[in-house]
């Protein structure tokens, strides 16, 4: 049990890791992430890398949808922009990944801002519809701008290389992607300790009082779009370097819905929400595969149902969490911590 709150300075009270269990918990998590590639098989490492990529993307969606309250149905398509920008720039310019990634992030932020422009005049529902339209238009452009994107047949790129070593194995790619993801999450967490993040939440909660207080709606809504898209771009870039081959269909509406599902399940407007959500949506197909593996001996055709079963699971998760636990897994996590803190007394 943790008794009392012995903070002597405001800085200590404002810290992210406010108590020793949280501090050690974070340290243990970092240690676990460092050791994982040495302990686990390459498939687990591959899944962990994917979780990291999804976490970055969903953190961007969290800034836009969770904190600022602008529901986006185009986030998956923006990840596609980031991934394609990475592949195209890397192929054209032949420059190393640490040059390509920032460029791809900038391109995606630009595209996101373009589609965020309607947000200056509209809100709520209309904005969601605008992002839905953006999603279709982006995927359409990727599919039909064959001379640049290679159209339906997809595009490939050379692996990222560090000191002449190509990052092709799963642990190598893990070593590149996971640290970037951790830093990206910390960056977002810090944003919400300052005026920028508070302004976003203010717009979500009550946009007219935000204006009275001096928060410029235009500026901050565009900023939210820019940041959210930049995160999507970063996720896309990492995605490209992880898979090294891309297809336009990967970034259709379904991906945006998966991101939204992850956000709702993980817990929106919470730092850990995207992390929990990403783990969850990456594990669902694996768990379903595992379950269907047991059922195959009884019904060999059942494997055909894997894809639609995933689709159903994502949709059900959104609905069930919206109805029963709208604050997501992060809220449950907080309750567990509170219980541990007060143990052996009841909370």
């Amino acid at each position: 049990m943790l008794i009392g709150d012995y903070k002597a300075t405001y800085a200590a009270d404002e810290a992210i890791f406010r108590s020793w269990p949280v501090r050690y918990g974070f340290a243990a998590m970092v240690a676990g992430l460092v050791l994982l590639p040495f302990a686990a098989n390459s498939f687990i490492v591959f899944l962990a890398t994917q979780v990291a990529i999804y976490t970055v993307a969903i953190t961007g969606l969290n800034i836009l949808t969770g904190y600022t309250g602008l529901i986006s149905l185009g986030h998956g398509a923006l990840v596609g922009v980031g991934a394609y920008a990475t592949a195209i720039l890397a192929n054209w310019l032949g420059v190393p990944f640490w040059v390509v990634i920032p460029m791809a992030v900038a391109v995606t932020a630009g595209v996101g801002l373009m589609f965020g422009l309607p947000s200056l005049r509209i809100r709520g529902l209309y904005l969601t519809i605008a992002t839905l339209a953006a999603s279709f238009i982006i995927v359409f452009v990727i599919e039909h701008w064959g001379s640049v994107t290679n159209g339906d047949s997809g595009i490939t790129l050379a692996p990222a290389s560090v000191f002449g070593i190509d990052l092709v194995s799963d642990p190598q790619k893990y070593a590149l992607i996971v640290p970037i993801a951790v830093l990206a999450v910390l960056f977002a967490q810090n944003l919400f300790r300052t005026r920028i993040g508070r302004a976003f939440i203010a717009i979500r909660d009550s946009d007219y009082s935000a204006e009275i207080i001096g928060v410029g709606l235009t500026r901050y809504k565009l900023l939210a779009f820019g940041l959210g898209s930049a995160y999507a771009g970063l996720a896309g870039s990492l995605w490209a370097y992880n898979f090294l081959a891309l297809l336009p269909t990967q970034f259709e509406l379904q991906l945006s819905i998966i991101f939204l599902a992850a956000l709702v399940v993980g817990g929106s407007a919470r730092t850990l929400g995207p992390v929990f959500g990403a783990v969850f949506v990456i594990l669902i197909p694996e768990m379903l595969k595992w379950v269907f593996g047991f059922l195959t001996p009884f019904n060999p055709t059942i494997v055909e149902y894997t894809a639609p079963a995933n689709t159903i699971a994502y949709g059900l998760l959104i609905i069930v969490f919206m109805i029963f636990e709208p604050m997501g897994l992060a809220a449950i996590w907080t309750r567990i911590w509170r219980y541990i803190n007060l143990w052996p007394f009841s909370p």
Partner: peptide, 9 residues
């Protein structure tokens, strides 16, 4: 939005 996925699947 969740319904879209559930019904389509």
């Amino acid at each position: 939005i969740g319904l879209i996925s559930v019904l389509e699947g």
